[in-house]
Design a protein around this nucleic acid. Sequence first.
RNA 1: CGGAGCGUAGCUCAGCUUGGUAGAGCACCAGCUUUGGGAGCUGGCCGUCGCAGGUUCAAAUCCUGUCGCUCCGACCA
Length: 590
Amino acid sequence: MRWTHTLIPTLREAPAEAEIVSHQLLLRAGLVRKLAGGVYSFLPLGLRALHKVERIVREEMDRAGAVEVLLPALQPPEIWQQSGRYETARHVLYKVYDSARREWVLSPTAEEVITLLAAAEIQSYRQLPKNFYQISVKFRDEIRPRFGLMRAREFIMKDAYSFDVSDEAAQESYRRMYEAYTRIFARCGLRTFPVEADTGVIGGSLSHEFMVPAETGENEVAYCEGCGYAANVEKAVSAAPAAAPETSGGSTPAPEKFPTPGVQTIEDLTRPPYGIPAARQIKTLVYIVESRPVLVLLRGDDQLNEAKLAARLGTTVFRPATPEEVYATLGAHPGSLGAVATTLADRAVPVWADERLRGATDMTTGANEDGYHLRHVNVARDLRVDQWADLRTVRAGEPCARCGQPLRIRRAIEVGHVFKLGTKYSEKLGATFIDESGVRRPCVMGCYGIGVTRTLQAVIEQCHDADGIIWPVSVAPYEVCLTPLQVAEDSPVWRAAQQLYAALVEAGIEVILDDREERPGVKFKDADLVGFPFRVNIGEKSLARGEVEIKRRAGGLETVPVGQAADRVAMLVREARAGRGGTTGDSGRF
RNA sequence: CGGAGCGUAGCUCAGCUUGGUAGAGCACCAGCUUUGGGAGCUGGCCGUCGCAGGUUCAAAUCCUGUCGCUCCGACCA
């Protein structure tokens, strides 16, 4: 390809709209252009890199035994109602209307379609297992599109769905996908780490996310360097001490009401004249769960983890109560709330409490009377708790639940997610089969996603320097950039470049020839910005010595005789292709 | 959905406070010079100042509304 033939609109300066480096480089290198917030056009180079990622995904999915299909993006809302997700996923569903005013849903994912397909086409255990995948455009009405391709309204996802006869068989399908994902990201030149994950609105029993460590990531991962434990903080647990230590010595006196005028927060009570440490307070939250109030109790210095709460409640349809709703529920306003049995009286509100409160004594909590709190509260004796659960968010430094070493927390980008779904969808949508003994049973499912466009940007986020992108060979838009410093038809430099170009194309190398009439500095800067793994400089001076330069974007320069240049470059490219993709990934642990 | 900031040339931005009819750098076009890390000189092109309404003799500038973009938040009572 000649540079002037394609379109590579590089930018010297980063557009103001781009905050993070990978987003800036996507735009500066001329890979994508924004049409609207969270909606992007792929330009020729961006599309080539995207196709490379897709090809790796296809090869590994095929190798793992999945078969490719293509499912509709335009879906009838009825199937979403059938699965129950028309409601639970309503905030991400784009809805469109045809000329007959009929509603359609733009697919954010395809469990419904594929499960209905399996329901229609799979009848016998003899047809199982099956694993279907597709690579297609997905639509999500994101609350807040961000960071270019990272969180977009329209994006490309690889989604796969496995159907098995039993839980054990489904476990094997899950394992195969897990391994395929590990290979896919490694081949893309990414260092990724599988971490335990929450299953969210998708549902299911077991789940891992594949994370790329990055300060700009939207997820937090808790991990242990001692034993290798790693989990999304939405899911992570620790061995934090279960109860605050006793401060009053022996047995605690009965709860005592005391005035706390103006106190609104945990922090207010930690200050004089009260001086009550947050760890000795009980935080009382009121949530509206499917239109009914629920109390959630935590230690004052702990944070509620809504993902854990959702998992325990079995629904994502909940929100914090408004101050008016709080008053209607407890007869007091936020700041004076509590769950001491005597102050709840006959109020029929379920109380959930975090495990860390179990057995705590001499605690302070609101009295359900504005401007008053209770001290000397003994959790086991005084509180009315209906459900105990792990509801808190772990914090860095807490001991690992497995080995006791301190947990660390790092931000990361989620590029892949695997779920063991069980029979949630197959039961609702009728994906059943007849087993060996003639019994009809629901298929046991798994689903597996890779954000293909996000993966591409994650590669840039991880592989760049001050000059631009440093593409791993496996996903580079072109493997080699030929940079002749003269392009006059009759110049020896141009003739040598053309010969080298022809020889490399003949050798099956993906090469772009910078045939622009630009000064050397401009060509070098652009090639570095776009990030081609290899650049061959052909200049008058070195050519006069019969030599050209081969420069690696990742670092390294060698001079070779012009006659050997094609063979040498082809060899270097093949070596790089055979490697893991350009960066050396350490494996296994976060 | 709440909060904040920003919309002026393809890109980065100035001008707005104090109203007087639009600028710089880069990019682009032409010419000359230059030619190994984003060249120099000369000339040129490019704008309904996001949109709509209002105030005014006069609006990029002041007011109102609206749309868009970006960031923060949308657990911590």
